[in-house]
């Protein structure tokens, strides 16, 4: 009889999408996933991120193809409209499923 503890396969943790895994970007994606689209101010307010932080996270998410950034005007006022893409939504769901799956295997 072996006393060796049961081995838990945590390998999927290593395969988590690093773009989504960062808490700030995860917040942005989650926030955008419940609206059709939103402007910069709304996302900043909802996530609590600073303007600089949000800008850099958005640049990374846009580069990954997870959000689209559209610069428009509301009257004469500039407005940056943000929208989660199909692949962004899929990445968010896949991340959530993988994380839930790994956490479910943890003992205790």
């Amino acid at each position: 009889m072996s006393d060796e503890p049961e081995r838990i396969d945590l390998q999927p943790l290593a395969n988590l999408d690093r773009v989504v895994h960062e808490p700030g970007r995860l917040l942005v994606l989650a926030c955008l996933s419940v609206v059709s689209r939103a402007d910069f101010l709304y996302v900043m307010r909802e996530t609590g991120l600073t303007q600089g932080n949000l800008s850099s996270h958005l640049a990374r998410l846009e580069a990954a193809g997870y959000v689209t950034v559209e610069k428009t005007f509301a009257g004469k006022v500039p407005r940056t409209l943000l929208q989660i893409t199909g692949s962004g939504r899929e990445a968010l769901l896949a991340y959530r499923d993988r994380l839930v799956d790994v956490l479910r295997r943890l003992p205790g």
Partner: peptide, 15 residues
């Protein structure tokens, strides 16, 4: 909403 809210709390379009 555009006049009152958008420049105060941001704009969001819901499904």
């Amino acid at each position: 909403r555009q006049q009152v809210a958008d420049r105060r709390i941001g704009y969001a379009e819901l499904p």
